[in-house]
Computed example of a mutant assay.
Amino acid sequence: MRSAGLAQAEAFLEMLSAERGAALNTLDAYRRDLEDAAGFLATRKTTLLSADSDDIRALIEDLADRGFAASSQSRRLSALRQFYRFLHTEGMRGDDPTGVIDSPRKARPLPKVLSVEEVSRLLEQAESDIAQAGTDFEKRQKIRFRALLELLYATGMRVSELVGLPERVLADGGRFLIVRGKGNKERMVPLSGPARAALAEWIEARNSARLDGDEEPEWLFPASSDSGHLSRQVFARDLKSLAARAGIPSRLVSPHVLRHAFASHLLANGADLRAVQELLGHADISTTQIYTHVLDERLRQLVTEHHPLAKSAINRDEARNPTLARGK
């Protein structure tokens, strides 16, 4: 170590090795983290042993300034937390300067979203697959898949909610589904015309294949599985296969991506965020707000088209540069 705190840091590393069985690579990583921290603290005229909370905050800010990702900053902070807890436990410090430091927030990745055109291609391919089915059994399988796809895009259900729909799930003459989500909370979601038609065709095809004496189905999409209904893995596999046939990279398509598409397309067409929250079954609206990135372009267009000052600015720009007007 390059500053005071060397003996304490070495004692900490020995504890990790002896008591926790830390691997050599882990010990080397902790040593590098502590050495780097000691070097920065030296520029603030302090040491690992005497640093306070402001020093630790400045260290984390320095890591960010140096381009360290939030995950790397969090790992460095975790190493320091363990080091200072060790010092406190061993009576080498009376406090823990990392105790009041918040972990750096990781950037929340935007969800993958299919365009309306891409979803349309999936639905058209599912329809084409039915027409090309060779046997009655194959046709029923294709009709079932098309119904699942229509329901998923029409409702934004989680795939586990979709495949686990009970038989008696329709409400109000088939215009709504009663969905049981997380925490056994029920919500009603409306069905589009195409979804109702696809579901009705599936139920007719399924019932026509039933033999006399067969029990009433418990599930809307029954299958020979431990659960008695279609598994989400089978549906996800079939969805990727459909995407490939539709000319869409299968890595971009999953049941959850269609749930994202449902929410994003609603918001892009003017739906209220609270309504989308209810439809998705989100307990907290902050979870739904991840989809608001799709509103940026729509809001920009609204301001450009309807705000009088925005219009004036556009006209002024075109007057200064006639090329802009000709390019409209």
Rank of each mutant, 00 (worst) to 15 (best):
L299R: 14
V100N: 10
V276A: 04
V163D: 02
P217R: 07
D296S: 13
E138N: 03
G39F: 04
P322K: 10
R20V: 07
S231D: 12
T47G: 03
R105V: 13
A64E: 12
H282G: 07
D214N: 07
R300L: 13
A147R: 03
S264R: 04
S17K: 15
D172M: 01
S120H: 13
R158P: 07
E216G: 09
R232D: 12
G173P: 05
S78W: 06
A261L: 10
R300T: 10
Q132R: 15
I248Q: 02
A29V: 05
D54V: 08
G270R: 03
V119R: 09
K142W: 01
P97S: 10
P109W: 02
A18V: 15
L123G: 08
L177K: 06
Q277R: 03
A205L: 04
L49A: 15
R180Y: 01
L267N: 02
M1E: 05
A133D: 04
V159R: 05
K240R: 15
L49Q: 14
L230W: 04
S224T: 11
L230D: 01
A200V: 00
A244E: 15
V189I: 04
R93F: 12
K142R: 15
R44E: 14
D317E: 13
F145N: 05
T47F: 02
L324S: 12
D62K: 11
E161I: 08
L6S: 14
A313W: 05
G164I: 09
L63Y: 14
R158A: 09
G173H: 07
T287V: 10
A283C: 00
H88Q: 14
P166S: 11
P222Q: 08
L149V: 03
M1Y: 06
R232H: 10
E10W: 00
L110H: 08
D226G: 02
S254I: 03
M15T: 13
S72Q: 07
E278W: 01
A195H: 00
L239I: 01
S74R: 14
G228P: 11
L299A: 14
A268W: 01
A11F: 04
R93S: 13
A310W: 04
A223I: 02
T46M: 08
G181A: 04
Q125S: 10
N321F: 13
L151C: 05
L309M: 12
D272A: 03
A209W: 05
A197F: 00
L295I: 13
V234T: 15
H229G: 06
K45V: 04
E118F: 11
T287P: 02
V303T: 12
L59M: 12
